[in-house]
Amino acid sequence: MGEATTTAADREAVRAVLRQVVDPEIPVLTIDDIGILRGVEFEGATVVVTITPTYSGCPAMDLIKDEVTAALHGAGHADVEIRTVFSPAWTTDWMSTEAKHKLNEYGIAPPQPAGAERTPVLCPRCAADTTHVVSEFGSTACKALLVCDACKEPFDYFKEI
């Protein structure tokens, strides 16, 4: 902070702070889990955080920017700049296996591999593969609404993209 050179350790310290920032809609996932956080750099004393939106119109991005700024201010970084990039295009393939497991535990079926034909989505409650899509557009743009034919419960599926 204000030093002529910043080290990899400085950047890693910032990343550690940002890994605490959760997705406002899916609080079991951090912005790192989802792949929204793309990079951390120092430009002088300014911390430059690069993020990418999941869907073009994701309405949570403003809140995520606020939370990132607040988290970094809380960690003692007064100068924060957030840059949004569209490229490379965000894909659910960036989500880690651990993140997908957390999603499933939370009750949201995790995304299948992008670009492949979708196979039957497993119910996050009873694990049945007899589920059907009610709507490709669910509670948020990134999720579809399905119903389990076995336990009859509706659930969200994080769409592969």
Partner: peptide, 12 residues
């Protein structure tokens, strides 16, 4: 970059 994202959304 905008188009690459938009294309994926256009498929849905």
């Amino acid at each position: 970059g905008i188009a690459a994202k938009a294309f994926k959304e256009a498929r849905y």
